[in-house]
């Protein structure tokens, strides 16, 4: 397979990989690294690519696994995360600034969800995958996908209601 043939297959969903990675890792820089890593892995195993019925789903699963590994090693190796426990009350100014933009607010709400919910919500509502694709990607049972999705959407609604009541932004 030549480089251009490979790119032809990969480029249509490259941004989806990036967005999923960013949803999990939050930082754009890390998301770019993860996307690159996944694409390089695909390129080095390019002979097998034609054997997969759905390269996009395969790449998305790779991205998901890669990012979860990243998060795990980050949690294991980086104690700075503990710090966020007590910085809660202090950053009100930043919170207010962010709250001004209601779309940023939703983004923040979404990134506070548990990883599983975040991913399902990303795949369903942002990338508009259908349920069967999400089941395969997440390796979850159909009911589990719906339950997770419902929880994620309700969690977002909850936060939006809170914000609505207090009238921020």
């Amino acid at each position: 397979m030549t480089q251009s043939e490979f790119l032809e297959i990969v480029l249509p969903f490259k941004d989806k990989l990036y967005r999923l990675a960013k949803r999990l890792l939050v930082s754009s820089e890390e998301a770019e690294d993860a996307t690159q890593e996944v694409l390089m892995k695909l390129w080095s195993g390019k002979k097998k690519i034609l054997g997969y019925s759905n390269v996009e789903a395969f790449a998305m699963t790779m991205t998901r696994n890669f990012c979860l590994d990243r998060l795990k090693s980050r949690q294991a190796g980086n104690l700075k995360l503990v710090h966020s426990n007590f910085s809660d009350g202090g950053s009100t100014l930043q919170q207010q600034v962010e709250a001004r933009d209601s779309l940023d607010w939703v983004s923040r709400i979404m990134n506070e969800l548990p990883e599983q919910q975040r991913m399902v919500l990303q795949l369903k509502d942002v990338e508009a995958y259908d349920y069967s694709e999400i089941e395969k990607l997440m390796d979850m049972k159909p009911t589990a996908v719906r339950v997770t999705l419902s929880r994620a959407r309700k969690a977002v609604r909850e936060k939006l209601l809170e914000k609505h009541r207090y009238g921020i932004g």
């Binding site: 480089q3 490979f6 790119l7 990969v10 490259k14 941004d15 990989l17 990036y18 967005r19 960013k22 998301a31 770019e32 996307t35 690159q36 694409l39 390089m40 390129w43 080095s44 209601s102 779309l103 607010w105 939703v106 983004s107 979404m110 990303q122 509502d125 942002v126 990338e127 508009a128 977002v156 609604r157 939006l160 209601l161 914000k163 609505h164």
Partner: peptide, 27 residues
Amino acid sequence: EMYKPMFGYFSQAGKERSAREVPLETK
């Protein structure tokens, strides 16, 4: 009205693009 940002964000988030080129040459 309160649900608007939710759907607005979903549609906007789907437009974000990766800015980095795929560096295959190094391989």
